[in-house]
C-alpha cells in the first residue's frame, strides 16, 4: 500500500472539493478499496473519508425511496421499505458477500466495486483495466468467470455487484454532487460504461464527483425476485445472476424488467428480452424465447462458454418463477 494522507470530511461539498485533487479517492466502507490498495492496484495518495457524512438516511420520497450513499448494505437490506416494496433489492443484497462485509460496505461503494478478474487482481499480469495498453491476460487465459455480453478485445471483465443488478432492474437513479457544488441525477444505466478500448474508465462520474444517494422510483407493479448462481452456497461471486420484475395480467406479461449480473462489464439490462416478453402469454415458451433474445449477442471466450446456456436456463426459470408459472412436470 502506498503511503497516503487522510482527511475526514464533515460536509459533502468540502469532500467533493478535496476529492477533485489528483490522486485522491473517497473511502467509505473500504471493503474493496483497501483490498485493492494492499495489492497496489489502487494507489491513492490522499483519502477523503466520507463515512461520517450525513448520508445515512433511507427515506420515502412520494412513491419512491431515497437511499443515502453511506447506508451500509445490511441496513439497506433490512429496511422495511426495501423488504416490503423492493424485495429484488433486498434479495440481491443478501446474496452478496458476507454478513461482515455487508455491515461495512456502503451503497455508493457497492456501485463502484471493481471487477474480480484474476488478472486485474494480479499486478504482475497484463491488464488494460489496471494498466492501460498492457493487454488483456484473460482473453487467452482462464476466463471461466468472464463476460459473455458487451465485452471487447481490450477487456472481458465483469462487474461483481449483486446490488447494482437489482438497481438496474428497478430503474434506479444516482444523485451526485460535483466539486463545483452542482448536483446531477443520472439513471443507473448511464453510470456504467462498457469496456470498449478504455476499460480503465468504468463509470461516467467526473473527478471528485460524489455519489450522495440512490433514488428508487415507485416499485413497478408485478412480482420481483433475484436469483444468483455461484460455485458454492454462500460467500462467492455470481457466475450468473438475474433480477426480474414481471407483471402478469390475465395470463399475459404486461411488463417485464430484467437485469443480469456476472455476464458483462456492467449490470446488464436485458432490453431485448423485455421487449420480446411484453404482451406475450405467460408461458414457458415465452420465457424461453425471451431468454434466447437476451443472450442472442452473447459470445464466449472458451472458459466461459457455459455461461451462455447457463444464463439462458436460469433466466427462463427465474421468469417462470416470478410469473408464478410452473414448468411442465
Amino acid at each position: 500500500m502506498m503511503p497516503f494522507t487522510y482527511e475526514r470530511a464533515l460536509d459533502a461539498s468540502s469532500a467533493a472539493k478535496a476529492a477533485a485533487q489528483p490522486g485522491t479517492k473517497y473511502i467509505a466502507g473500504g471493503t474493496n478499496l483497501l483490498d485493492l490498495m494492499k495489492l497496489e492496484i489502487e494507489k491513492p495518495a490522499h483519502l477523503v473519508d466520507i463515512t461520517r457524512l450525513p448520508l445515512r438516511q433511507i427515506e420515502a420520497t412520494g412513491d419512491g425511496v431515497r437511499i443515502g450513499s453511506q447506508v451500509p448494505n445490511s441496513d439497506l437490506a433490512a429496511h422495511p421499505l426495501i423488504r416490503e416494496r423492493y424485495p429484488v433489492l433486498a434479495k440481491a443484497l443478501l446474496a452478496g458477500a458476507s454478513g461482515q462485509l455487508r455491515n461495512k460496505a456502503s451503497t455508493g461503494g457497492n456501485l463502484l466495486q471493481r471487477t474480480r478478474c484474476y488478472y486485474f487482481y494480479d499486478a504482475e499480469k497484463p491488464c488494460n483495466k489496471r494498466e492501460p495498453g498492457s493487454g488483456c491476460a484473460a482473453l487467452q487465459g482462464f476466463n471461466r468467470i468472464h463476460a459473455i455480453l458487451g465485452a471487447s478485445d481490450s477487456c472481458i471483465a465483469v462487474h461483481p455487484s449483486d446490488m447494482a443488478v437489482a438497481l438496474t432492474a428497478l430503474d434506479a437513479s444516482i444523485e451526485t454532487l460535483l466539486p463545483d457544488g452542482s448536483k446531477r441525477t443520472l439513471p443507473i444505466g448511464d453510470l456504467y460504461r462498457l469496456p470498449g478500448d478504455t476499460p480503465h474508465i468504468e463509470t461516467t462520474l467526473k473527478p471528485g464527483e460524489l455519489i450522495t444517494a440512490v433514488v428508487l422510483p415507485a416499485p413497478p407493479a408485478g412480482n420481483q425476485t433475484y436469483r444468483k448462481v455461484r460455485d458454492r452456497a454462500s460467500y462467492a461471486f455470481a457466475l450468473v445472476s438475474v433480477a426480474a420484475i414481471v407483471r402478469v395480467d390475465a395470463g399475459r406479461v404486461r411488463d417485464a424488467r430484467i437485469a443480469m449480473g456476472g455476464v458483462a462489464h456492467k449490470p446488464w439490462r436485458a432490453v431485448e428480452a423485455e421487449k420480446t416478453l411484453r404482451g406475450k402469454p405467460a408461458s414457458m415458451a415465452s420465457f424461453a424465447a425471451a431468454a434466447q433474445a437476451a443472450l442472442r449477442s452473447a459470445k464466449g471466450h472458451g472458459g466461459n462458454d457455459f455461461k451462455i446456456p447457463l444464463a439462458q436456463r436460469v433466466l427462463t426459470r427465474t421468469l417462470a418463477d416470478v410469473a408464478g408459472i410452473e414448468g411442465a412436470a
Binding site: 494522507t5 490522486g23 494507489k43 495518495a45 504482475e124
Partner: peptide, 11 residues
Amino acid sequence: VLKSGVAVGVI
C-alpha cells in the same frame, strides 16, 4: 499531499 504515481513499483 503526494502526487499520484510517485514511486510505483516496476511491474
